[in-house]
Amino acid sequence: MNRPNVVYLSSSAHSDWRNEVRAKYQNNANVILVGPCEQHGLSDAMGAPGDSRPGHKLRITQMLSKSQILFGYIPSDRYRSFNIMLEIGLAHAWGKKIVLVNEARSLDEELRLAVTHVDEYFTSLDQGLTYLEQMLAEPVVNPNQINYSLGQSGTEQLSHQVYLAGEDQSTDWLETIKSHYRSYPSVQFCTGTDWASLATSDILFAFRSSPERRLFNIPLSVGYASTMAKRILFINQGDHHSHAYDYVKPFSDGYFTNLEKGLEYLDYTLGIENR
């Protein structure tokens, strides 16, 4: 079985154009479509752009990092499309293929810089989707060319690797987290002291379940993961000795004081929206 093409659909949530694309590829096992959250209520609850909650950053960086192609669409100038520009910047730095469609003629001048950083540029959605179809008929990128620092691997399906760091004298918390995702085989976990596993993971989920031990392995793991641009969720159950972790918090994408909230944000990061 060939590895699938993963396409990140970037645009405003105020348009249903993605439904047409999903319908076209719904029976094609070689194409997986991902993107930001399109449910406004959920998106706002998890961290809309502009507030301090980390959901927006976690979701777009995780899904975009798993993609080979970014397909960006600007239907009008109503929302100015700052999110698309941000995602193009990320995709360009990560070596993704970028296709941009702009149907807002009033933005042509403002897009001059962005256009120099995309692979293909079109002025109509039909043209862009026709080109995307041609791209998806080609072989997927050679796994040897994948940037493993993003947590990508040459698997045959889209998967998310989560490294679990925390209490090593009790495994109850590990089983709680793993059981939460038992019906989601695309979510895979690794533990232990081998940072090679952390290096090839997408997300560090660090959980301090006990107020007794210092658990130096958590700040160690956070520091290592931060330099490799991993998504980092740090849960300090009960907010014990919070001041001692003030050094760690700025290096985490999200800091939570109970496991339930941490798992809620991990769900969102992984695109699990309706449990």
Rank of each mutant, 00 (worst) to 15 (best):
T227W: 10
D168S: 06
G166T: 14
G192Y: 03
L158Q: 09
S221W: 06
I177S: 10
N142H: 09
H14W: 13
R213D: 09
G50L: 06
G262V: 00
R22L: 13
L266Q: 07
S226W: 07
A29C: 05
M63T: 00
R59M: 01
H243K: 05
W17T: 04
Y245Q: 05
Y181R: 07
L215M: 13
D172I: 03
Q127S: 15
L111T: 10
I84T: 13
S197Q: 09
L270D: 00
F256D: 06
H14S: 13
S197A: 09
V222C: 03
D16G: 13
E264K: 11
S201W: 08
S11E: 09
V140D: 01
I74G: 02
T116W: 02
L107Y: 04
L164N: 05
W94A: 03
A29F: 10
W195R: 10
S153Q: 10
V6K: 00
Y73G: 12
I69W: 03
D202R: 01
A206Y: 05
A45D: 02
G254A: 01
Y247V: 13
R213K: 10
E175L: 14
Y224D: 04
P211N: 06
L150P: 07
V7G: 09
A165D: 03
P185V: 08
T227S: 06
Y163C: 07
Q134F: 07
G262E: 00
S183W: 06
I32C: 02
N83L: 08
E120K: 14
L58S: 04
K249Y: 15
Y181I: 11
Q145G: 04
I146K: 08
Y73K: 07
L174R: 14
Q188R: 13
L220S: 15
S201L: 04
P54C: 05
Y163F: 15
A104T: 01
S67G: 01
W195H: 09
A165I: 03
R112D: 14
E212T: 12
V118M: 11
P143I: 01
G50K: 04
R214K: 14
F256K: 03
Q145P: 01
V248E: 07
N28L: 07
T130I: 12
M228N: 05
L215S: 15
L150A: 13
I98M: 08
R3N: 03
Q152T: 14
I272H: 04
P75C: 10
I177L: 07
E120Q: 13
L198Y: 06
A48D: 05
S183V: 10
R18H: 15
F207L: 11
I232Y: 07
V101Q: 01
L220Y: 15
S153F: 09
F122E: 06
E38T: 08
W94Q: 06
S76Q: 10
L86K: 04
